[in-house]
Design a protein around this nucleic acid. Structure first.
Lengths: 140, 140
DNA sequence: ATAGTTGTAATAAGTTCAGTTACATCAAAA
DNA sequence: TTTTGATGTAACTGAACTTATTACAACTAT
């Protein structure tokens, strides 16, 4: 199992917008050319980013713009915008309540799973788009 | 995206073995009945756990046994046994090297992704099977 | 030799992902 | 007002993964 590439595509997208907005009109075709995926894929991801309040999109005239300052956008914001699963793990549905383990498996594991997911999300929240942008500019 | 239920099934499996080995013969049918999935699914997961050195399986006569002490088995061991992806995130394949962002996206994100994955895995490594077994016995 | 179990292959249905085509809609600008 | 270039979205496709299920050869204790 892997997360879909939507997360890295969305991050790449936001970096491009942060880098080029004002200078160029950042359209789905512009982004598709940098990221090298289909423009419709970009438009769908831009739609998710827009629904989460991370970007604004000019319908008609075209172009995507950050809706927040780059230091207010974290990797966690991006992740949550494009990966909408509540829980990281798919739990088997109907453990047998007549088995001592089947009866208790949820009470034993649910909190653990939350903690694991939180560890991942907390780490994601540590990195902002502005940090990534600085890194990118250094390595350009 | 969610991880498959193999992780929770494998954990449930190991808890059952830890609880019942010696007392009952823990077969794939026994486990399937507690977990409420198909016995073939169990046999495949037991095969993965066995390949990772977590359990031993008696071919012919039947039955699964822990190959390590419960306090030497962590959730990370279980996770790695059943989820074999190297990297948690699927990176888009061919960013455009003619774009300043496309050119640098890997150097900017690869280490972040590793850090995020490590945060998750480190948290998984904190919990042992013996801790889960204690919890289960308390709640029985 | 029997019985019960494991290992494994094959099939199937359901879901997700990503690519692609097509087109209605929209807003600025000519 | 018409043109132009975008966006939003639907539909379809092929690939991959998940889980359930059937079937059966191989194995080992009794």
């Amino acid at each position: 199992m892997q997360f879909s590439s939507r997360f890295t595509i969305a991050t790449h997208t936001l970096l491009c917008i942060a880098m080029f907005q004002g200078e160029y009109k950042v359209t789905s075709n512009f982004l598709a050319s940098s990221i090298n995926v289909n423009p419709v894929v970009i438009r769908n991801i831009l739609g998710q980013l827009s629904a989460s309040g991370l970007v604004e999109i000019k319908v008609g005239v075209g172009g995507a713009y950050l809706a927040k300052s780059p230091d207010e956008i974290t990797l966690l914001d991006i992740f949550k915008a494009v990966e909408r699963e509540e829980s990281l793990f798919h739990f088997h549905e109907n453990p047998n309540p007549e088995c001592p383990i089947g009866r208790t498996i949820h009470s034993v594991m649910d909190k653990k799973i939350d903690t694991i997911q939180s560890a991942m999300e907390n780490e994601m929240a540590e990195t902002t788009l502005s940090q990534l942008l600085e890194d990118a500019k250094k390595n350009m």
